[in-house]
Design a binder for these strands. Structure first.
Lengths: 232, 232
DNA sequence: CGCATCTTTGATAGGAGTCAATATTTGTGG
DNA sequence: CCACAAATATTGACTCCTATCAAAGATGCG
């Protein structure tokens, strides 16, 4: 087996995990790994040579840039996530590393060929795309109705789950992958409101702040209740 | 060729348009057409026998229901749009007809088989899914930052374009497919705010209201400017 | 150690929500 | 075809949440 793939941490969870070993080797020869430092851009809105990629480790954000130059975070990408618009002539969004990130990058052309050669890959990407769609709609649901407190509680709960090993139970403690400004941006709030509401969540005993980025979940049920969500 | 398909208005634009004639005929034998009246539900959140469908004519809404029973419209579906979560055990959202709608419905099992048998279909659905994802993210961008006025202007502009024959120019006049309550719900506003802002858009000379549902676009550029968007 | 960046905290104001009343449209049955 | 009831939409007064403006504390990096 290809060396890179052999020790890939997402080899069993990424889209390419549905391929036969031979197929994956073939695909890996046209892909290349790339490492981005925090803040570095994989590609920008408007790029016409934007590629596709699977995130191997780290975290990325997908953000739109409006005509005033303000960015709006649309989605976070976690390891094994797939990035890339395969059917548009150019990228609509910026894709930026939140932490040092390792990616497996493919040109759009190679990716197009791959999904024709390997139908299972197309189906895997379809599944992933529908999951992303569901996540985006959950975000809509959250931001449409929902106070600042509810949005923040939901985001914290999501992060806690993402940080946990067990799939459904939230981690007891984790580091925020985003700055206050990024959190505010993602939730459609201001930095000040995020800061205040974090303080209130701490006062109420739902969380405890550990330094600037550290969060300890004291009362997950309370957090979930505040978020206004049932489960997912 | 199959009779139903032969006179299908979306036969050249729906996902199944990528199939060979023979393949499409085969698929059409396992699908069935269904007609829903305004307000009727295709399936509901939680249904485990939820199916997949292509919208042939009419308009549908996809809506989440929170634990208080309030609905949140997440997306509208227009003719040739595809509906259905193929990889989840049960439906997450309600799917309801906004106007009398005709659909081509497939059981999930048949659909799963179809995307295995016809790789081109899987690719077509992938493309559609990515388009839906992009639409959902545009919605996020709109609702996150953006005043009530901007959201409403953007929605009206979108509707005007959807109502137009030519792909890019907005229609000069059209009927709103949604009630005030549905518009409010979709934009994360209240009925009263929608009503007021519609009045202001009229005062400003951007639109003219014709009865409850009719809208005439007086000044498309102004509307676009208020929406805070560049183009799409 | 000092500067730059990020975060917290405070005071104020504005936009949208809420509550309430009125007007309009729609649909149904007489 | 009209009349009445129910649903939908508009308008007004008031309140509350969050944005904005401003300043002071942390935190981190060179």
């Amino acid at each position: 087996m290809n060396l890179v793939c052999a020790q890939c941490p997402v080899r069993d969870s990424a889209a390419c995990s549905v391929l036969e070993e031979k197929e994956r080797d073939a695909l890996s020869t046209v892909g290349r790994t790339r490492v981005l430092k925090r803040g570095e851009m994989l590609f920008a809105a408007g790029d016409d040579e934007a590629a596709c990629a699977t995130l191997v480790s780290g975290a990325m954000k997908i953000a739109a840039v409006d005509r005033d130059g303000n960015e709006q975070i649309l989605s976070l990408v976690h390891p094994s996530g797939f990035i890339g618009e395969m059917f548009t002539p150019f990228a609509h969004h910026d894709v930026v590393a939140l932490t040092e990130s390792r990616l497996c990058v493919f040109s759009r052309k190679d990716m197009e060929r791959a999904i024709e050669d390997y139908p299972a890959l197309a189906r895997a990407l379809l599944r992933r795309s529908q999951e992303d769609l569901h996540a985006a709609r959950s975000m809509i649901e959250l931001t449409a109705h929902g106070s600042a407190e509810a949005r923040l509680a939901a985001l914290l709960y999501d992060f806690a789950r993402a940080a946990s090993d067990s799939p459904c139970h939230p981690a007891g403690e984790f580091d925020l992958p985003l700055s206050r400004g990024e959190i505010a941006n993602m939730l459609g709030l201001t930095i000040e409101t995020v800061s205040r509401k974090l303080g209130e969540l701490e006062d109420v005993g739902a969380i405890r702040r550990k330094g600037k980025r550290g969060i300890e979940i004291i009362d997950p049920a309370h957090l979930l209740a505040l978020s206004g969500k049932d489960e997912n």
